[in-house]
Design a protein around this nucleic acid. Structure first.
Lengths: 142, 142
DNA sequence: ATCGGTGCAAACCATTTGCACGTTA
DNA sequence: TAACGTGCAAATGGTTTGCACCGAT
């Protein structure tokens, strides 16, 4: 997804485009892996020393509500990660040592999960599939 | 799983058995669905008006660390649910309306997820697979 | 000139922790 | 009686909200 497409979606909905918003979008687009609000704040501080964490959260929430971002929840109480949702549907490998989150082009739902859910009369809206473990760099390091 | 088995595991590990502990174990065993700390507190108050939420949390954590409970995380910031882990490995259907959590005898990992993860040199420790949507009772109610 | 967006500070909520006392083994 | 477990209160960490000002449209 390109920055301008996101900006366009914003204008379409009547939202204004601020420098902070552009910066948040760009930081997310440049991120090599799904990012946390805190990580984004760090990077954004370079350009906007005064940007606040609440602005980051507000915009992440807005982008998520617009359906542009996926929110990846790891554990209750742990921080969420965000990524653009336009990439082909996929899930993640989450490293328990370094916290890195790699994308995985395998979807559990496609392999029967959906059918299993609907057997129960459930109307499926979404799903989470996350694998925890240690990435190659961290294996055995602990 | 029976209450006495759990108690036995506790003693084995050198933990003491208190009335509160027994009550928490029983409340979890009786629960019709994975329970939250708050729900458990409510029920426990009948027997122990003075039991505190921290005691519930402490014991849920202990039981989880001993591998006796599964902790089901929904969203970051939302409360976790707990269930005994001795039932055959499975996942959940979580209703976004009423919060009910039904068990599902389908495991995404078994269908190829594990292989997909190991392709990346990842050492798999655990995984989460949760399906969100609306249960039969809540469909269309919103 | 509006009205939405921002920074700041304070509020919130689930969960955790420090401490002194009570209870189990 | 020696740990360990508990209740209480306070701390924590992620996230949200109220408010007054500022900036995009």
């Amino acid at each position: 997804m390109k920055s301008e497409q996101v900006v366009h979606r914003f204008k379409e909905k009547g939202y204004k485009i601020t420098p902070q918003r552009r910066a948040i979008i760009n930081a997310l687009l440049l991120a090599k892996q799904p990012a946390t609000a805190g990580e984004l704040l760090q990077e954004l501080r370079d350009l906007f020393p005064d940007i606040s964490l609440d602005t980051v959260y507000r915009n992440l929430k807005l982008l998520t509500d617009l359906g542009l971002l996926n929110q990846i929840n790891v554990k209750s109480g742990e921080t969420s990660r965000f990524e653009f949702s336009d990439c082909p549907h996929h899930h993640h490998l989450v490293c328990m040592q370094c916290g890195a989150s790699r994308c995985l082009d395998y979807c559990a739902m496609e392999k029967g999960g959906l059918a299993a859910a609907e057997e129960h009369g459930f109307e499926v809206v979404g799903h989470v599939f996350e694998i925890y473990g240690y990435c190659p760099g961290c294996r055995g390091a602990n």
